Amino acid sequence: MKTLIIYTHPNHQSLSFAFLQKVIQGSTENPEISEIKVLDLYEEGFDPILVFNKEKRRRDMHADPKLEKYRHQLLWAEKIVFIYPIWWGRPPAMLLGYIDQMFASNFAYRDKGGLLPEGLLKGRSVVCISSMKGPALYPLFWLHNAHKVLMKKALFQYVGINKVKFFEFGNMESPKGKQEQKLNQIYRYFRRLSS
């Protein structure tokens, strides 16, 4: 199983970075996972800003030469792991900018003229690992599960990815947040993960 990890946090002293290390550790010890690639969007200097003008049209984004490397990564991957914090009830703008550009028409999906498009990234699966300061049930009850709906229905299912697993950890800035327990949960999950 070829695994692409997309890490989105500007601080390598963060809990998100600790989750990244546990994903790598568990994946490395898992004989089902043959290869691992890590894309650190901040370290990479990924430009999340969309630009459309006379020379750069949205309909051509699927062929933008500046994004070719990232398209190859997504096509290569059988499992895609996203690691990010929840800020203001949603993923960071850096990750949303990546999504805006990478999950483009004629690369991630193709319009068929009906209600839903043809998803072109079928056969892949996704794991989202997110953490937040607020309580774990805050997104469910206060935000009507907006984060998961955004990621699973509006994005992944739209492009043909139906197998999506969420780890959404709350109270992560609290001394009672059980951070070590949650880090070990992620390590064990990836150590045992099978396709």
Rank of each mutant, 00 (worst) to 15 (best):
E78C: 12
R71C: 05
D64N: 13
W87K: 01
P65V: 07
P48H: 10
L75S: 10
Y84H: 07
K79S: 10
F46L: 08
N53F: 15
H72F: 08
E68P: 00
N53P: 08
A63T: 14
R58A: 13
V81L: 06
I49A: 05
P48S: 09
Y84D: 01
L75T: 12
M61R: 11
D60W: 14
P65I: 09
R57D: 03
V81Y: 04
E44Y: 05
K79D: 02
L50S: 10
P85H: 06
P48Y: 13
E44G: 00
K69N: 11
K66T: 09
L67G: 01
P48V: 15
V51G: 02
A77F: 08
Y84G: 01
F52M: 11
F52E: 12
E55Y: 14
Q73H: 12
R58L: 14
F46I: 10
K69A: 12
I83Q: 00
A77K: 05
A63D: 06
I49S: 03
F82P: 00
D64H: 08
H62W: 13
R71K: 15
W87S: 02
A63P: 03
Y84E: 00
P48Q: 06
F82I: 09
D64M: 05
V51W: 09
R58M: 14
V51A: 09
I80H: 00
I83E: 00
K79P: 03
L74H: 06
M61Y: 12
E78T: 08
R57F: 12
L50M: 14
E55V: 10
A63I: 08
R57T: 13
K56I: 07
L74N: 02
E55R: 11
H62G: 04
R58Y: 15
W87H: 03
I83W: 01
E68M: 03
D64A: 11
M61H: 06
K56Y: 08
D60F: 13
R58H: 12
G45T: 11
H62K: 07
I80F: 05
Y84A: 07
E44S: 04
E68D: 04
K56E: 08
D64P: 01
K79Y: 05
I86K: 00
F46S: 02
R58P: 00
P65D: 07
K54N: 15
P65C: 06
W87N: 03
V51N: 02
Q73S: 13
